[in-house]
Write a protein that binds this DNA or RNA. Structure first.
Lengths: 218, 218
DNA sequence: ATTAATTTTTAGACAAGTCTAAAAATTAAT
DNA sequence: ATTAATTTTTAGACTTGTCTAAAAATTAAT
């Protein structure tokens, strides 16, 4: 069994590993969890004893298979709860994160299974992120950051890279929601801002925004 | 804001206060929380600093108004979650306690309000216990332990005094559920066991059972 | 290839919450 | 009203998770 703190570390490492092949540095984890590198060193030793990470001094950490499975089950819970909050309790997608952050630590396999069934076995959370199955497998679709599209390319909005309520509310304000078709009309070399077409409306989008929106090209 | 531990103490004191006018002893709290009296003394000092209990050395503790309200809000959450688990997620009434014990500590006023509405503003949990409203008021009905009924008295089963899964499963096995009409046919002086009538069936009930079943006389 | 800058780890400390064992206060018993 | 039994509190210690400051290792720079 893992403490809330241990679970948070596992989740952080899990997310950091997604785009990183080498070991994750204690500094990176510290930044992610808003804590100190020395605290991370301590915790990582504990997790190593519990065989959920492999840790070599100064070399960073990697999740073991057990670690990956454990982390995935936490992410699974987090995302299922997010779906529940949005679909059943009228939360908006920018309100769910903090609550899901608490709910993900509830320990009850039956609860997770029943919520999953109650929601009709969803595959994506409200931000477009895939929900790992019980074994920890995730159904990754090939998506690209909007910022990587070139003039005249288009696709469907399928996810966000930043789940902060500020960003999500901004998207709401601009009418950008998951499932909508987006076409790049123009890309400015100067600041990498984009002019896009979304539902017959023309929008101007900064690079920062485009860097946090995932598109499935087609 | 209160820690999970502090919340558990408040809840324990709240429940112990229900049938007790004087201050609650540290020993009683220790027993309820399965901890040591010395730990209780420490915690009770903290709670006193936070003005949720009044504590005089060797004199036990009492909840302040703030303490009562805080405790009631935890009990409210606990009972709402129990209803949710039973009504929406197919848990049986003997499975909900441990999960609700975790869920009650989730901090999100909106979540509680929405669950409440989602469930149609229930007034009782699956065990017949009243759900405090937002202000902490509870709708107490006048119920009596089955063990206090005399021959030929009857009423409706409205609650249990013991929520252990052992007891609840026993009731399930005997077909005793909330809402059913019960009549006392006979009461043995020797062991205070009862012969009762429930839905045209005649059952023999020990005093221990009768001491944990609430009846609304009529 | 040394020196300098950065990252990581260690060492020691602290807060929360708990425990055991001993001391103090209260309650019960004669 | 003392003494005995019980309850409650205190004192000191331990665990988990964190921190700061210093030491050690790694990486970058000349």
């Amino acid at each position: 069994m893992f403490s809330q703190s241990e679970e948070n570390y596992l989740k952080a490492i899990y997310h950091l590993e997604i785009d990183a092949d080498k070991g994750i540095s204690t500094n990176a984890i510290a930044k992610k969890l808003d804590t100190k590198a020395s605290s991370v060193t301590d915790m990582v030793k504990k997790l190593s004893d519990k065989e959920v990470v492999v840790y070599k001094k100064y070399k960073g950490v990697k999740l073991t298979n057990l670690g990956k499975k454990t982390a995935a089950s936490i992410v699974r819970k987090h995302r299922l709860w997010e779906v529940f909050l949005v679909e059943k309790l009228n939360f908006s997608w920018d309100e769910v994160h903090d609550v899901a952050e608490q709910l993900e630590h509830i320990k009850s396999p039956k609860l997770v299974d029943q919520i999953d069934a109650f929601l009709g076995f969803p595959i994506h959370d409200p931000h477009g992120d895939p929900i790992p199955d019980k074994e920890g497998n995730i159904n990754t679709i090939d998506k690209s950051l909007l910022s990587t599209l070139t003039k005249n390319e288009s696709g469907v909005c399928v996810g966000v890279n930043d789940s902060s309520s500020e960003f999500l509310q901004f998207l709401d304000k601009k009418g950008i929601t998951l499932g909508k078709q987006i076409t790049v009309l123009e890309k400015e070399n100067f600041d990498d801002s984009l002019s896009i077409l979304i539902e017959d409306r023309k929008l101007s989008i900064s690079n920062k925004i485009a860097n946090n929106l995932y598109i499935q090209k087609k």
